[in-house]
Design a protein around this nucleic acid. Structure first.
Length: 218
DNA sequence: ATCCCGAGGG
DNA sequence: CCCTCTGGAT
């Protein structure tokens, strides 16, 4: 098959997968609890190498104490560290959250910027976090959110051979219509959590097994 | 490439 | 014990 024909068939397979995942997870959405763009930004920074479930356990106390960019920008670092401690990497996360909020207050009129270019200037924010904020706080499909689940499932499904999240994102952006970029990410994350687990994928009950090159049935 | 880092599962 | 969880900076 020619390269062009191969890409075309991959696109068709990707859309079929998306149809099935929409049926499996019709109400899939961002599962980080938040009341504002800055709270979503902070929750997303905290979600690095940590389940959303655990992030959601610390954010109620965190946002009760520091509800907005101004209070987070002026937070006592030790107190901030203790509030986010159980999410892991807590020194980096606390430092990044405070620094990012200081920049938001100083340079962006205390409002989370709605542009990729600006978000990437905030400490602790790279494309993954920026894509989450743009998609769920601003409704902007700037790219494909590539976290550990999207990376693993996209590889297993045969849609990228790369390891670098930026290259994986580029492959997925070519593969999918822009309107489905965030649909892809959110559904793959749900499916990765429930079925296509890192350690022991449940291929026996996976609804994608018949069109997955990595499926291992019996 | 390496470091940051806690909590839970197997 | 080892691996994984919605990564990012050096």
């Amino acid at each position: 098959m020619s390269g062009k024909a191969k890409r075309s068939s991959q696109k068709i397979r990707a859309l079929e997968i998306l149809i099935r995942l929409k049926r499996l997870y019709p109400d899939a959405t961002c599962s980080l609890t938040h009341d504002s763009p800055v709270q979503l930004l902070v929750a997303t920074i905290l979600s690095a190498q940590c389940t959303d479930e655990r992030v959601n356990k610390v954010t109620p106390d965190l946002f009760a104490r520091f509800p907005d960019a101004e209070s987070l920008a002026n937070a006592d670092l030790e107190e901030l560290e203790q509030l986010v401690r159980s999410t892991g990497f807590y020194r980096n996360k606390a430092k990044n959250i405070r620094a990012a909020c200081r920049k938001i207050v100083d340079d962006f009129d205390a409002q989370v910027p709605g542009r990729m270019e600006d978000l990437l200037q905030l400490s602790g924010v790279a494309r993954k976090t920026a894509n989450v904020v743009l998609a769920h706080a601003f409704g902007i499909n700037a790219g494909v959110t590539v976290d550990t689940h999207v990376k693993r499932l996209s590889q297993r499904l045969g849609f990228t051979k790369h390891q670098d999240p930026v290259r994986i994102e580029r492959d997925l952006m070519k593969l999918l219509p822009q309107a489905d970029w965030e649909n892809w990410s959110i559904r793959l994350i749900y499916h990765g959590r429930a079925i296509c687990k890192a350690r022991s994928p449940a291929c026996e009950v996976c609804q994608l097994a018949d069109i997955c090159p990595s499926a291992n049935i019996g």
